[in-house]
Each structure stands twice: as C-alpha cells, then as structure tokens.
C-alpha cells in the first residue's frame, strides 16, 4: 500500500455564533479504495466534516491532504481542481429542480469544460455522450429531458450520483444520501455507491444514520460524537456497549433491510 489518499490532521471547526465546536481535533487517514462510513447522531459533525474537507465550509484549523496536496492551503483555482476530483452526493439531492435531468448531470463537468462553452451552455459532444452513459448506469436514460422536480426522491438521488460520476471522481462524499428516502430505495442507492467503489475504484466516504446499513456496506467505520472521534474500526467491532457509547444510553438499534 502506498501513501494514504486522504489525510486529515487535527481538523477543527468552531462556529463563531454560539461558539459551538462542530469538529474537535479530528485526525485520520483514508486509503485508496476504502468504503468508509461516518456514523453518529445528527449534529455530531458528520456533514461539517465532509464540507470542511472540500472546503464548502472553511475549517477553523487543521490540515487536509489529498494525494499529498494541501487542500486547506489551496488557492481558488487549485481548490476547484481538487473539488472536481471529489464527487459529492447530498441528503436533499440538491438538484436544480427546474432544470432538466441532463443539465443537472452535465453540471458535474463544469470543472472540466472550457469556460466559454459553459457560458453558452454548449457542452462538448463527448460530454453529452458521457452524461447519457452515466444516466444509463443509474437506469435513468429515458428521463434525460424530464425536469428534475418531476422525479421521485430515489430517482433524484440517482441523478445526483450520475452528476458525481460525471466528475470522474477519485473520491466520493455522500452526506447522508438516504435519510430522505424509504428503506428499499436506500438500499438501491447504497448499492450504486458500492458499485462505484468496487468497479471504478472510487474511494467512498459516506455519512449515515443507520448502523445496519453501515455494517452492510462499510469496510471501515468512524463514529463521531460532539465533533470528536469516539470509535474507529471494522464494522463488526461495534457491539452493544459501543453502540450505546456512540448513540447514547437510550438508543435502540433499528434494523434496516
């Protein structure tokens, strides 16, 4: 194994208002090809962590290295190059609801395509072909010209995955991708992520609520509580006691199939 793909060192985020420590001195490493799962209660800092890594939120202190490049010190052009290597899938899908599915997917190429082309909205032919292929992969090819808000939640999330695929990412962040979906759809979405992980070799970091899903898909689990790492290890290492530690005394594990 060569150098770790992603290194997080002492990452801390303090929100100025309210002086909440959303992240407190978080450090770990991620190797290529991992399916890492972040678990924890809402507000434990999972979303903040993901956004601090690609700097959608500016971290207060700490360092992030992607393939040895300092992300936290990157200037705007370099930051954009880094961001385009990191695909991201969101809890609320974050599609432009009034645009067509195709336009939404093509937005994944914005970091690659020459500027004048995006200004006119004229993407290269190969990009459109690529978008078709990506949509085909998530089984939504025939919905290409449909407006995004006409799709169901699961379909929208698949469009979100296709958008991430367009970036040719080497790293994929999924911020609670299934919280807004029903259990059956949740599984199919996570299977798409697993497929990306297995066949394309994309490293996946996925924030999840449910431990059962984490056990099933994760190769490694990191648990956050109040912005700190309280557990790091393999999925089967989480037993009853650990579970209570992460989720609090009153928690009860729920099985999701």
């Amino acid at each position: 194994m060569d150098k770790p793909q992603l290194q997080i060192e002492h990452l801390t985020k303090v929100y100025e208002r309210g002086e909440v420590r959303a992240l407190n001195d978080v450090s770990f490493e991620v190797n290529r090809g991992e399916f890492l799962i972040l678990i924890g209660l809402s507000g434990s800092g999972k979303s903040t962590f993901l956004r601090c890594v690609n700097r959608l939120i500016e971290p207060t202190s700490g360092k992030v290295y992607l393939n040895g490049i300092d992300v936290t010190g990157a200037r705007s052009a370099e930051l954009r190059r880094i961001r385009r290597q990191i695909g991201m899938v969101f809890q609320q899908f974050n599609l432009v609801r009034r645009s067509s599915v195709l336009t939404n997917v093509l937005a994944g190429r914005l970091g690659y395509v020459p500027r004048w082309r995006t200004l006119l909205g004229r993407f290269p032919h190969e990009d459109i072909k690529k978008a078709e292929a990506c949509l085909d992969r998530v089984g939504l090819r025939e919905k290409m010209y449909t407006r995004a808000d006409q799709l169901s939640g699961g379909q929208q999330q698949r469009v979100g995955i296709a958008r991430a695929l367009m970036q040719d990412p080497e790293l994929l962040f999924a911020d609670e991708p299934v919280s807004a979906l029903d259990p059956a759809t949740s599984n199919s979405i996570l299977q798409y992520l697993e497929q990306m992980n297995k066949s394309d070799g994309v490293t996946v970091i996925c924030a999840l609520h449910f431990l059962s899903l984490a056990r099933r898909y994760g190769t490694r689990i990191i648990a956050l509580k109040d912005g700190e790492i309280v557990f790091e290890g393999l999925p089967n290492e989480i037993d009853e006691a650990r579970f209570k530690e992460i989720y609090g005394e009153d928690a009860e594990e729920v099985e999701i199939r």
Binding site: N54, L56, L79, R80, R81, I82, R83, R84, Q85, I86, G87, M88, F90, Q92, F93, N94, L95, V96, R97, A107, G108, R109, L110, G111, R115, T118, G160, R163, M166, Q167, F173
Partner: peptide, 16 residues
C-alpha cells in the same frame, strides 16, 4: 441553496 452547494462542490467557478 442546496443546488448551489452541489455545483460548487463539482469545482465550478462562482459565476458558473
């Protein structure tokens, strides 16, 4: 604001 975040995360410029 969701879509803006998503598009910024793909490495797009501000005007994009």
């Amino acid at each position: 604001p969701g879509p803006l975040e998503a598009i910024a995360a793909t490495g797009a410029r501000r005007w994009q």
